[in-house]
Each structure stands twice: as structure tokens, then as C-alpha cells.
């Protein structure tokens, strides 16, 4: 250690004393604190299925593929979302679009919701505002396969 004049004085834990060592005052303090919560009778939780909390703005739930004015998917299969996805849960296969004003569209667009971490990077990366995260968060299914959402499922979200 040495005697460095500029050294910060070392902080020593305060001496507890006998009573402190027995922890009894601290325990009593803690018990009073929790008793206070019992008496307070103030709940932070909701009766979940009956009452639902409105998601906060920007809540990241399940994905949706958006449609343009003509009802076609906006997605142009640019792979930006699958490239940026840290969970590698987006699988895209592109094909030529059948429409004259567009060149490319996804033939297959699958999101593995079981792998998705709902980080929202896909939404952030999308140049066409074609993918977005909805506020939907509780869609239980019975098999894993059902959690791999295909294009139709994502478009209907």
C-alpha cells in the first residue's frame, strides 16, 4: 500500500457493535417495513385476464407485416431485418414480384417467435416500414411449429 499522500482514505465498514452483530435491530426494522406493506393494502398487480394493462407506447410485441394502399405486402425482401436480427429468427426467400411497379417480394417470410427476443431491431432496420412490432404479447399455442409465423400470419397480425 505504502503511504501515498494522495491516496483516497480507505473506507472501512462501520463497526456494528454487539447489538448490531446480533442483527436484531435490523431484523426488527425489516419486519416493520414488510408489515408496513401488509398494512398499506396497495396492489401493483392487476387481475390479469379480467383487467389488462394498456401497453406503454413503444411496447414491443409480436410482429406484423404491413400492407400498402393496394393491400400488397410492403416488404421488398431486402433482408435488412434478417441481417440485423441478433437472434437470427427471420427467414426470407425472395422472388420476383408479379406487379409492374415492384421488383422483389418475399416468397417466404418466416419469423420464429420462439427465438425472437422482441428487440425491435427489425422494425428499426426496415427501409420500407414493412415490419413493425404490435402490442400483442400473449398468443399461447400448443406446438412450437405454430410459433413459426409465416407471411400470411404476419400479414394478418
Amino acid at each position: 500500500m505504502g503511504h501515498d499522500a494522495h491516496a483516497e482514505p480507505e473506507k472501512k465498514p462501520g463497526k456494528l457493535g454487539l447489538l448490531g452483530k446480533a442483527y436484531l435491530p435490523a431484523i426488527a426494522q425489516g419486519l416493520l417495513h414488510t408489515l408496513g406493506h401488509i398494512v398499506k393494502w396497495d396492489h401493483n398487480t392487476l387481475n390479469y385476464p379480467d383487467e389488462k394493462r394498456a401497453p406503454f407506447p413503444g411496447y414491443r410485441g409480436e410482429h406484423r407485416l404491413t400492407r400498402d394502399e393496394q393491400g400488397r405486402e410492403k416488404c421488398v425482401a431486402c433482408f435488412m431485418c434478417s441481417t440485423v436480427c441478433p437472434a437470427h429468427c427471420i427467414e426470407i426467400v425472395a422472388e420476383e414480384a408479379p406487379w409492374p411497379d415492384r421488383e422483389k417480394r418475399p416468397k417466404i417470410f418466416n419469423i420464429d417467435m420462439m427465438r425472437c427476443i422482441y428487440c425491435g431491431m427489425c422494425e428499426w432496420a426496415c427501409p420500407c416500414e414493412a415490419i413493425e412490432l404490435t402490442e400483442v404479447f400473449n398468443i399461447p399455442v400448443r406446438t412450437r411449429a405454430e410459433k413459426i409465423y409465416d407471411k400470411e400470419r404476419l400479414l394478418s397480425n
Binding site: H37, K40, D42, H43, N44, T45, N47
Partner: peptide
């Protein structure tokens, strides 16, 4: 119930 109250929850209801 008591643990729920301590944690400001409702507990089994």
C-alpha cells in the same frame, strides 16, 4: 396471501 401483500401483490384470488 401474506407474501403477496408484502410484495404489494394480490395473491391467490
Amino acid at each position: 396471501r401474506i407474501c403477496a401483500w408484502i410484495q404489494d401483490r394480490k395473491g391467490p384470488n
